[in-house]
Design a protein around this nucleic acid. Sequence first.
DNA 1: TCGCGCACGGTAAACGATTTCTACGATCGG
DNA 2: CCGATCGTAGAAATCGTTTACCGTGCGCGA
Lengths: 349, 349
Amino acid sequence: MSNRRTPSARERVSLRAVAELADVSVATVSRVMSHSSHPVAEETRKRVLEAAERLGFQPNQLARALVTARSQTVGVIVHDISDPYFGELVKGLEDEIRADGYRLFVASSDRNPERELEYLRAFDAYQVDALVFAASALEDADYRREVETLVGRFESRGGITLVLSDHFAAGHRVQFDNRAATAAMVDYLVDRGHRRIGFILGPPDLTVSNHRHEGFRRALERRKLSYDPALVAEGSFSIEGGKRAAMQIVSAGEPTAIFASNDLMAIGAIRALLDNGYRVPEDVSVAGFDDMLLAEYAPVPLTTVRVPTYDIGREGAILLRRILAGEDVEDVRLVGEIVERRSVVAPPA
Amino acid sequence: MSNRRTPSARERVSLRAVAELADVSVATVSRVMSHSSHPVAEETRKRVLEAAERLGFQPNQLARALVTARSQTVGVIVHDISDPYFGELVKGLEDEIRADGYRLFVASSDRNPERELEYLRAFDAYQVDALVFAASALEDADYRREVETLVGRFESRGGITLVLSDHFAAGHRVQFDNRAATAAMVDYLVDRGHRRIGFILGPPDLTVSNHRHEGFRRALERRKLSYDPALVAEGSFSIEGGKRAAMQIVSAGEPTAIFASNDLMAIGAIRALLDNGYRVPEDVSVAGFDDMLLAEYAPVPLTTVRVPTYDIGREGAILLRRILAGEDVEDVRLVGEIVERRSVVAPPA
DNA sequence: TCGCGCACGGTAAACGATTTCTACGATCGG
DNA sequence: CCGATCGTAGAAATCGTTTACCGTGCGCGA
């Protein structure tokens, strides 16, 4: 009853305030507020709870984190939070992890190595308990090296790393085999009689693009079909890119089917084909990848590879929960499946 | 079992470690790391920087926040982060605010009052510097009262509140007049000759739904058209809801146009109409609201009201920056515009 | 020559929690 | 009847920073 400091704007309600009102020590208040195992008499507990209620006390998580060395936060890195793919994934993650009292920092790297690194450092500074790589890695040597150092540092301090994408960072992971899924779609097309299959690539600086590309080549090889560069074009994972790439392929190569390595590009391809007098799927079939919500409502309902985005997030959260609880866990593997709609049929005779 | 504290495989690198290595006091290290105005000799500074670099020192933001009472974080509440509307908005916010060193906590309330409150409390506990309501409020009395208490508490401690939606919470705001924008689309339809206009409502427990509804009624009144309940149905802001609502309206009322109060429902409506033998727009026109990325690639390219989602986020961030810098600011007002595509034409003769 | 201001650096008190250690009565087994 | 144990509560150290407050030593104007 002697402590007087500068008359701050408005007193923050701290343990001390509650302690004074309830006429107990801060230790006691802390014990009841944090459900400590240290016994507190029922009567005292009630007094404390009442005081806390009266003052609208909310324990300061920052202070708490400082001493417990657990912030109850998770940092998530995506490429673009406005992309429904990542939105779904983050949602799965959040829905599952929030029950454990964890909160999410989300950061969009915008596919920029600098920016991803900046966020990595920030998350480290904020002492997140876990780091989640929801976005594919970028193809850049300096960046890779730096990511490795940062993640190493982070883990050596007890942080945990979770990878939900084609990212090279070491750590626990929920795997989705992009190569296999891509190959499966090629098989599906070949099985239906297609021999000249166009392929629309994602941006070359994304690991996931390359993995899908590899899946495509391998499947072709396995099916004894040759890889024709004229049938391959880059579409930057965007609708516009898909339009351009589709027209390029169709004019250079006469494909009977075009396989876009994501749905956005597939939608662009369909629109471009339609606008240029091709019938889809009668003249040329189009397949996509992702199965985004609107794939079903594309100009022609899209046959595509379903990526279980929400589940990737959700499984990630479950993994996280178990790791944080100290259990031994194994990586999770999820697979895609082909969703048949109307954009793929047998090639014209 | 072993729920021990820091599994600290290695010492966390703190100011102290750096200080020891550079052979100075922690105060000095702090001063150079935080670019304090307190002078530090060039030679000393270099030694400190070197030591910090060598150890990979990253100042602990939590500790820093504790003493400065500024966490450099912002809490954002949305309904559903997988909804591109919120994705865009959050992106605008993030793109702009990150330069100032702020990080975002994002939380999806899932349109659940309890959940929104839970996040509000959590953000408070994490001492966010600002609270952003990116999602429309919910219509629930208890919840409103509680939000008011919490926000009041938050602000009395110096927190700032920003509203980017139809949310009643007091605070600075970026306004988008949903009533006016809805009315504008009605005018557009009436101007083209439509007299019997169907309307698909959003979920009734969302303030934004009611605002759009009001805009619809008012415009009808202004144009001397009567409000026919048979032409109005609820579509819960989803594709499926849009399908159902459209079929209900069309079978009960014989509209020449259907105005869905968001694009997702409009897309559902178009698909349902098409699948049931109606031609769009020849038999019935369909209008949407939002202008989401894929509106252009709907089965019939959608005529809709453009909501400048990204800009709402961006302007919000700019406002925030200025408020945090202590400037006096005024609310921002953004307006929608009608994007004409192919789903609306004059009614059949 | 004196005194003052300035550049520079250290000491220690916060910030708001958790947790270890200590204290002290009451109960209880031997 | 005494020491051990238990239930309960407070004191104080601690987490990693920032920052107010002091001390130096030095240059310089009067």
